[in-house]
């Protein structure tokens, strides 16, 4: 195995939510001398999911070994991937879109395809299914860059609104001071 010298890796990890997943995984990585970068960790459908940037002088194999005991003990699925990444490169979103409606097939595909066509670059998307089994509601939160301004997005999304989906487009006005 070739030595990966101080490159970023993405750790993706998923498993039934149990106490201590985050503390045990990050402690194991810390003990091997790895540096942690940006991360997103959340519960999805009772599973705990982690996307975590890890920088280390170790090979992928060595990194995998370092968390193997925790992964086995907590019955997780994990994988490391070499990625092209850097920190301190945040782009600023200029538009926030909230979408909600009765859950139906295609609501995400419809909305995101429409956004793509309208020149919208998704930077962050989180969605939930709320309501109950009989009447599920789909709620989606999107942030990103509307290349042609938020009005173009609003117009493009009209065709989705016709299908009974509620959509709110708000410019994000970041105040830096």
């Amino acid at each position: 195995m070739s030595k990966q010298s101080n490159e970023w890796h993405m750790l993706t990890l998923v498993g039934q939510d149990k106490p201590g997943i985050v503390a045990q995984i990050t402690s194991a990585l810390f003990r091997t001398g790895a540096q942690l970068g940006e991360a997103s960790m959340m519960r999805l459908g009772g599973n705990f999911t982690i996307m975590l940037m890890v920088k280390s002088g170790q090979s992928l194999n060595e990194l995998e070994q370092s968390i193997a005991p925790v992964v086995a003990a907590l019955e997780l699925h994990s994988s490391f991937q070499s990625i092209n990444a850097s920190l301190h490169q945040h782009e600023l979103p200029n538009t926030r879109i909230t979408v909600y409606g009765a859950d139906r097939a295609g609501i995400v595909a419809d909305t995101t395809s429409c956004l793509l066509d309208a020149g919208f670059n998704i930077m962050d998307l989180a969605s939930d299914v709320a309501g109950d089994e009989a009447d599920p509601i789909y709620i989606m939160h999107i942030e990103g860059i509307a290349q042609n301004g938020s009005e173009a997005i609003e117009t493009a999304l009209e065709q989705i609104k016709i299908k009974g989906v509620n959509i709110d487009v708000t410019p994000i006005d970041i105040m830096i001071a």
């Binding site: 301190h88 490169q89 600023l92 006005d173 970041i174 830096i176 001071a177």
Partner: peptide
């Protein structure tokens, strides 16, 4: 609620 950044805290909003 609004989004803020600060010259004393670069690269974060």
């Amino acid at each position: 609620v609004g989004r803020e950044g600060c010259m004393s805290v670069p690269d974060y909003t």
